[in-house]
């Protein structure tokens, strides 16, 4: 994996270490990162994005404690091999939960029915294919 795969948005209300963890989670869930694949070193990520190395370490640490990554002795961090490679649909769907609940809230504020929103979503996903 290359450090450029991550994007950092300092202005976002989400702390940078969480941005990194979320992106790793998505990259792994979507299969763009396979089990056992080595991650760029803390220095590479920090240097590439000009961010504090401690932020990167913290993100890796959190990802490790969540079981996304594992520490390979002498090699650094790698994508964990414990079954994350085969993600069930429900696991991947769970990743969308934050965005979906935001959509649900906005739809209620705009007094839109679930059906109308679903139709729109179908159309959007159909178009994007």
């Amino acid at each position: 994996m290359d450090a450029s795969l991550l994007t950092i948005q300092p202005a976002s209300p989400e702390p940078i270490y969480r941005q990194i963890v979320e992106q790793l989670r998505r990259l792994i869930a979507s299969g763009q990162l396979h089990a056992g694949e080595l991650l760029p070193s803390v220095r590479d990520v920090a240097g590439f994005h000009a961010i504090n190395p401690m932020t990167v370490s913290r993100a890796y640490g959190l990802a490790e404690s969540e079981g996304l990554l594992e520490r390979l002795r002498g090699k650094g961090m790698a994508v964990a091999s414990n079954g994350h490679a085969t993600h069930s649909q429900s696991q991947r769907l769970a990743l969308l939960d934050p965005q979906l609940s935001a959509v649900a809230q906005h739809a209620r504020e705009l007094e839109l029915s679930a059906d109308a929103v679903m139709r729109r979503l179908h159309k959007l996903m159909g178009d994007s294919k």
Binding site: A50, I51, N52, M54
Partner: peptide, 12 residues
Amino acid sequence: ELLREIALRAGE
């Protein structure tokens, strides 16, 4: 570049 230098000096 300066920010990168600052970050790495502190981290390493």
